[in-house]
Design a protein around this nucleic acid. Sequence first.
RNA 1: GGAUUCGUAGCUCAGUUGGAUAGAGCAACCCCCUUCUAAGGGGUAGGUCGUAGGUUCGACUCCUACCGAAUCCGCCA
Length: 599
Amino acid sequence: MNQLENFKYDPAKSALAETLFQALTKIAAGALPEELSMLDFFKALEQPPEKNLGDYALPCFRFAKALKKNPNLLAEELKNALVASHNPWVLRVDLKGAFLNIFTDQKQVAKTLLPLLVTGDGFKLLKNNPTNNKTKVMIEFSQPNTHKEFHVGHGRNVCLGDSLCRIFSYNGFDVMPVNYIGDEGAHIAKCLWAVDNYKGEKLDDKIANKAEWLGQRYVEANTKLKEASDEEKIKYNAEISAILKSIENKKGNYYETWKVTRQYCLDDFNHIYKWLDVHFTHFFYESEVSEDSQAIVNEYMKKGLFVEDQGAVGVDMSDKKLGFFMARKSDGTTLYGTKDLALAKVKFDQYKIDRSIYVVGSEQNFHFKQVFYALEKMGFVQAAKCYHLSYGMVVRPEGKMSSRAGNSFTFLQLINLVIEEINGYLEKYKGEWNQARLDDTAHKLAVGAIKYGMLQADPNKEIVFDPKEWVSFEGNSGPYLMYSYARTQSILNKAQEQGIEVSLTNVDLLTHESERELMRHLYDFNQTVIYACENYKPSTIANQLFFTCKAYNRFYTEVSVMKAESDDLRGARLALLKAFGDTLKTGLYLLGITPPEKM
RNA sequence: GGAUUCGUAGCUCAGUUGGAUAGAGCAACCCCCUUCUAAGGGGUAGGUCGUAGGUUCGACUCCUACCGAAUCCGCCA
């Protein structure tokens, strides 16, 4: 989305920008540099560091420079012009050096903003963006490997990808959330190899969690390989290679075992997705694209792009300092990267997508540079529209998480831990609520706690995973936001019981400091979602919601809604309350969170 | 050797694309439930934004170098 389109979603800022631009045009008296436009003012208008300084601030330095004027003098001239303009948004303008501090008219803000939020129309503005409507965005995320444990790091990916889909959709994009299951490859061969060599229990119905059991076999295989002698290693690798070929060629005993064990893992994944309320419009499987990937290697070998090197086949990318991108191993099997090429071709040719987003961990930054460059060399213009949303790993306080170090944490373990903690809090509703409601509330709270924890951090930063902090629900946490929401519903319900209605007729009575503060946060909501979309950062929404909730909870303690000084004010406060509640609910939805009505 | 990311309060992190006196949450200390849910609110204390240069009217933000942490780099995914 370009800046010009954002313009219309911020009426106060664009009105100020327009007036200021006209004023500058007048002051310049024909000597206005061509590159200056209204948009520059729109971009330059910022929020002052302290709220008592004003609602918007304009540093005049760059405009002064463009006009070769003294910044302080220009600021004064702009101030006078703004005051004289009768712009309905302007209440007062202060001058501090070259800074123009603008106080907006609270009545104008309330009258513009609250009807949009209370009716819900404000949440549909971006959805109708005509440019974005025509853009087909495929977001690939989760990509779990079967036959491996699904740990908390995989959970972060799902939360991020799902939130991104919701954010893009809110911004009007035509979104396709897709998954790409790693159901083929060396790790599975290793797992099945370990199953065969496993001396303990057999894989049968007695095992409660088969996916987890398989994950453990995979870990065993790695240990056994690591500890093997050089001679054994050659033997083992040959066995594993044979298993991999059987799976890739889709015949033989291992292929049959693969089919069964694969399904156990898929069932496990779907269970998690369902719990998280995450949905995909399509599932791709590595096993589907292995044939295509072989064909691609053949095709581009003929074309001379892929070359043979030490028995393997790949692309030399030393011109971009990307080394050698291997597409086929010397044993004739393909690799992860090869399949990414084949899958990208399917996405471009069959799904006709305009943008392709890959949500994948930062350890694959190099890999995706290679893949995108390979696609470019293969002649796909869409390569320029591919984006790797890289995110940091989830690590333990003592360092990297690994099964071997005994500090790994599966996603299901985290879920159980959080649920247990929440059940403690919900004790107070035992007897009052039936079990179904208790479970439903616990579920919503647990999803919110986990997703918020995963999303409030900037994607490309590591998350230090400390279980203790994940069950602490005070301060900046998912439950804090959901609690804020429950507080709005409690009051709105009370109002409804008493037959008191939300009223938009007297919103200009909302002049209390805490009301003003809250409204300002609500006003910025859509801009934050635009920013989050443009920068692939759900974390900015999480942060914005947290600060909005802080403003709300302050409002909650400082003024009374139901016992407002007058009926008119009560109706207006109910409107603000509803506007906040709906904004929060919408924001939480964008993070993939559904808050309970009561908690 | 090459690629990428991170370094902000004791701990975990924000910082709206370069603006004014750097903000939260934990933890510590002190207040506030006869008042719409205390999973809440208010306050105190806590900082040379890794270091050193550079660009700029202005740098936590951009550039360079260095220090420290992490991840990846032809037969893993």
